[in-house]
Amino acid sequence: MKRILENAKPNGEEHRGRDAGRPGERRTNAVPTQALPKLMLLVSVVPRAKADLYLTLIQGFSVNLQLSLAAEGTASGETLRLLGLSDAEKAVIFSVIRQDIAEEALRYLEEKFRTLKNGKGIAFTVPMSSVIGVAVYRFLSNSGKGGVR
């Protein structure tokens, strides 16, 4: 049976699985656990022409799984002009990223949105609550065997 890995508590409190004893209770057969890094879903909306560039940039933050979808912006012509955007063709990139790296990635993206010509976009992170499968978690978090961090 696959194990459901729930994300670690925000304050770094040790995760207590379903088989973990109550607080204060002596735990037998307990597997030593340590706080697992939380996973976040990083959503980036970028110009379609720059999608491959942003995919490569985000991959540099220990991101192993990304999905890129073609999309269209809905901002009116006037708004587009005010924002300095030329077209409504967008790409939405969904990336699974570790929480401890997410902030650094967002800051990096913010800088790229500001400095890259025709590279304006938005990015935000949404917390993920669970993931099933140890191998899947290791893959998504780029930890354990083969992980760079």
């Binding site: 997410a102 993206l109 938005i122 990015a123 949404v126």
Partner: peptide
């Protein structure tokens, strides 16, 4: 709706 943790690039 989903809660957003952090966001960048908003105008």
């Amino acid at each position: 709706s989903l809660p957003v943790d952090r966001a960048v690039g908003l105008t």
